[in-house]
Nucleic acid binder design. Structure first.
Length: 491
RNA sequence: CGGGAGGUAGUUCAGCCCGGUAGAAUACGUGGUUUGGGACCACGGGGUCGCAGGUUCGAAUCCUGUCCUCCCGACCA
């Protein structure tokens, strides 16, 4: 994102809405805080979903589906869990409407009150562990490696398009293991799946880390996360993987017989990423002209735009363009030849730029004479005249280039925005003037963390997994510390 | 739930202070001319002004109530 937008941080949401709404990605629906994902935006989600799903399957997981409604009592089985989610649950209390006796319209039928209210899942741990109880009896049933693609609802007080909508799409993996070590290993494995997906597919560099106790998932023993940096200097939690210990197994009485014929509680993990990733993608790579998509998840990788005058030249261009189209298709490139007569070339250029299509090929009468086309890349906006010989291979290579370049650019920005701070003044100054991650010493207490958050709105994003030990003094209290942690203001 | 702004055509908004036939741009439809960075001309379709009351000869405009949306905060993936 360009400097103008960075300096317009206050209006960031507005810019984002404009781009995304007008760009055909999404709309707010009539339902408070929910989103309509238009076809192009959904195609983007599908690309991400399919790539992730393949990675889950490659690591031995299978998909299943569990109910949307959860009996209220399930939620309260795990103390920390209910504490964490109770405040944001949508509740179903009745199952029928009737005609309003007082006039037109319908009212809730008071006769149809549910004996036990149902909550709309904010996450599925409870109903899944309730189900797992019947699925697990012996160590031979373990591990249980299941994922579900679903929608969940969290009645947040304030919503933000893609980053925090009331309803969102996600996947949630829920696994059961015979040993603690195995569950921890799974937790870390899935974190790495998320990290490599973010980096290899989304071109989004992430920091792999572990959350502090106060930022932990409700009911988890440990929460691992990938943290990304947006172009405005704010951090975004892009995915989480939780080691749940035996908390849910105990709450839902999920035991198995081990080899020694003894009853034991299973060890659990859960992990998820959501449509928030679409937001991450937009905010990590976009510029003032709209979306910039990494080729690996762009629904459309190449668009060919003809420029013609009159029917005769149109036919000539058509046949050449279709040749290029077919060559690209044979290479497995997602390509569209837009020869619609409804809009002019300039309009098409702007349109596909806004949609983030990585490569545009323009072909006109002038090009035909010289046996060339004009190839424009979205990431750098460079335009180049390229000969028709081997054009498909050239473009295919260009897509790889763009993918790498986007990651490189984002990583350079990210790395430049991890700044050490050794005094409180420096810490505050960096937050206000530079943004990004700030590596600072922390005394390890939740109290200090809370005070820092209160004073600066910055939270500890994570303790990086590869963090090096270093003695120092807490940025706030001056108490001894053994390592720096990453602070940032976050979405 | 606190503080602010707002609800008028598919969309973005003007009109409201100072009451008097519902407006613009854009989008849409038809016809034509165009096409190397969001074309132009002509004609055309489209809104019970969020909802409910009140004041008035007359309300988008004034008054009361109500619902909803957006932004800022508390809360959070």
């Amino acid at each position: 994102m360009s400097k103008e937008i960075t300096s317009r941080n206050e209006d960031y949401a507005q810019w984002y809405n404009d781009l995304v709404l007008k760009g055909g990605l999404a709309d707010y629906s009539a339902v408070r805080g929910c989103m309509v994902i238009k076809p192009y935006g959904f195609a983007l989600w599908e690309k991400m979903r399919d790539a992730l799903d393949k990675m889950f399957k490659d690591t031995g997981h299978v998909n299943a589906y569990f109910p949307l409604f959860i009996p209220k009592s399930f939620l309260s089985r795990e103390a920390a869990h209910v504490e964490g989610f109770a405040k944001e649950c949508a509740v179903v209390t009745h199952y029928r409407l009737k005609n309003d006796p007082a006039g037109g319209g319908v009212v809730v039928d008071p006769e149809a009150k549910l004996e036990e209210e149902l909550i709309v899942r904010p996450t599925s741990e409870t109903i899944i562990w309730h189900t797992y109880k019947d699925w697990v009896q012996s160590y031979r049933d373990l591990p249980l490696l299941i994922n579900q693609w679903a929608n969940v609802v969290r009645w947040e007080m304030r919503t933000r398009l893609f980053l925090r909508t009331a309803e969102f799409l996600w996947q949630e993996g829920h696994t059961a293991h015979a040993t603690s070590d195995e569950a921890v290993e799974e937790t870390r494995r899935m974190l790495e799946v998320y990290a490599s997906f973010a980096e290899d597919f989304m071109a989004l560099p992430v920091i792999r880390g572990v959350k502090t106790a106060s930022e932990r998932f409700a009911g988890a023993e440990d929460t691992y996360c990938i943290e990304a940096l947006m172009q405005d200097g704010k951090a975004l939690q892009a995915g989480t993987s939780h080691f749940l210990g035996q908390n849910f197994a105990k709450a839902f009485d999920v035991k198995f017989l081990n080899k020694e014929n003894q009853q034991e509680y299973v060890w659990a993990t859960s992990w998820g990423v959501s449509t928030r990733l679409i937001g991450a993608l937009v905010m990590a790579h976009s510029d003032d002209q709209g979306l910039v998509l990494p080729p690996k998840i762009a629904p459309l990788q190449v668009v060919i735009v003809p420029i013609y005058k009159g029917e005769e030249s149109r036919q000539l261009i058509d046949s050449k363009a279709k040749e290029i189209h077919d060559q690209l298709k044979n290479l497995g490139v997602s390509v569209k030849y837009d020869n619609s007569d409804n809009s002019r070339p300039g309009w098409k250029f702007a349109e596909y730029e806004m949609k983030g299509v990585p490569v545009r090929v323009a072909i006109g009468a002038r090009d035909l004479e010289n046996n060339v086309v004009e190839v424009a890349r979205r990431d750098t906006k460079e335009k180049k005249t390229v000969g028709l010989d081997g054009i498909a291979q050239y473009i295919d290579g260009l897509l790889t280039d763009i993918q790498h370049n986007l990651f490189k650019k984002a990583k350079e920005y990210r790395d430049q925005h991890i700044t050490p701070a050794d005094s409180w003044e420096e810490f505050e100054k960096l937050l206000d003037e530079k943004g990004g991650f700030i590596a600072a010493h922390w005394d390890g207490t939740a109290e200090t963390e809370a005070v820092i958050k209160e004073k600066t709105k910055a939270t500890i994003r994570c303790i990086p997994l590869d963090n090096k030990k270093e003695n120092g003094q807490c940025i706030l209290t001056g108490k001894p510390s053994v390592q720096r942690v990453l602070f940032a203001r976050a979405y």
